[in-house]
Design a protein around this nucleic acid. Structure first.
Lengths: 211, 211
DNA sequence: GACGGCCATTGATGCAGATCAAAACGCATC
DNA sequence: GATGCGTTTTGATCTGCATCAATGGCCGTC
């Protein structure tokens, strides 16, 4: 990633709500996020949408387009976001020059698959409370990894987005957040969240009898 | 894939229920399925399981292990299955000799990501009936691609497996299959399925108001 | 060919979470 | 600082599907 960045200097910024790419479009670029955040989503022919991920700086978007030469999902900025854009056509060239690049890309994709598997597990087998607890913990970890506070952060996505991502209704997200708050596990005010009792949150995320 | 097969001749066979690899194990091999079928699954610390895919001949397993050097999921034969096993350690060597190999692998992974996104859409946003209809249609397509009958086939997985994969209960799978049968869309007897009215099935898979 | 285990099917009941409805709040614009 | 819109929150009701329970069918084993 940092490697890519050092090679290709093409930067772009997107404002909240702007599209980076949409599903079906020709695969021209991969995107490395430098600042801000992005959501990716897929949709059914009849218009229902599933958000497949929220992406923060340091992550790479667009590689799933490789197989068919067109993007499989759409990507939209959640806030003002700056990216580093790399022409897909130049990737082959670059890979020739930098042998480790292809390996890096494979690692990224491999990691994406792993992450998707986790999400499937979440969507298929867990209660709404577990999903939300897991979600908050996951965010906390990701922020920690970027040297931000793991216990105090701002959500760049709406309750509706969170619900969609987790496969639950917007209202249920609110209700459960309230429940967590009453239990003294978190505090929220609008999009700002404080995780107060991470241990208890983890207990919620991992409880329930076996299947 | 065929490329791989031509290079590395290491073949193995597994009987119904045998493990190819399990989650957390060191990443030693990738597997190309030659005959039979395999299910892959991930699980929560507390033992709940989510099946992430059913795999048929021509498909490659294990690439998601690349990122962390260990398998993220487990793979188990659904019936007698023969595979072509390639040492992970040799992949780098091979990639040096055959430039297109890495590209092929990336394509496979990219395709896997795409497929996972579809499954997430399925798990997150669709009713049990739609899921099952979609599932049958998907199987039909895959069989057709391998020059098997797209309307008559045997399921190598149990109702329980199907339910787990689709995020619904075993009993619900049965009930809906019965419903489809009563509606004249399919006929089932035990693991043999005939798709009678594919058009109607497609209608079920894609209906319902938008979100 | 009878026993035992697994898988499939069907029925009855309960609940988590969707959906519908409406109020309260924050934020941007004028 | 009033207006209006999008977001969040809370309440009431409804329902799809899980869960519990029981029976029946198939297949392998002795």
């Amino acid at each position: 990633m940092t490697l890519l960045e050092s090679i290709v200097k093409r930067k772009e910024t997107y404002k909240r709500g702007q599209l980076l790419f949409r599903a079906g479009e020709r695969f021209d670029f991969i995107y490395a996020i430098r600042g801000g955040s992005v959501k990716t989503s897929v949709c059914t022919p009849d218009g229902r949408v599933q958000i497949t991920g929220f992406h923060i700086p340091g992550e790479v978007l667009g590689l799933s387009a490789l197989a068919l030469g067109q993007y499989s999902s759409e990507a939209r900025a959640l806030e003002t976001t700056s990216v580093c854009r790399v022409e897909a056509a130049r990737l082959d060239e670059l890979a020739q020059k930098i042998p480790s690049l292809q390996y890096q890309m494979m690692k990224i994709m491999s990691g994406q698959i792993r992450q998707d598997e986790e999400l499937m597990l979440l969507l298929g087998r867990r209660s709404a409370e577990e999903r939300l607890a897991e979600y908050l913990i996951g965010l906390s970890r990701r922020f920690a990894a970027r040297n931000f506070s793991p216990t105090q952060f701002n959500l760049s996505m709406s309750r509706g987005d969170i619900g969609n991502y987790l496969g639950i209704a917007e209202e249920t997200v609110c209700r459960i957040l309230t429940r967590f708050q009453n239990a003294g596990m978190i505090a929220t005010q609008r999009r700002h969240v404080s995780l107060i009792d991470l241990r208890q949150l983890e207990a919620v995320a991992r409880m329930k009898p076996a299947a």
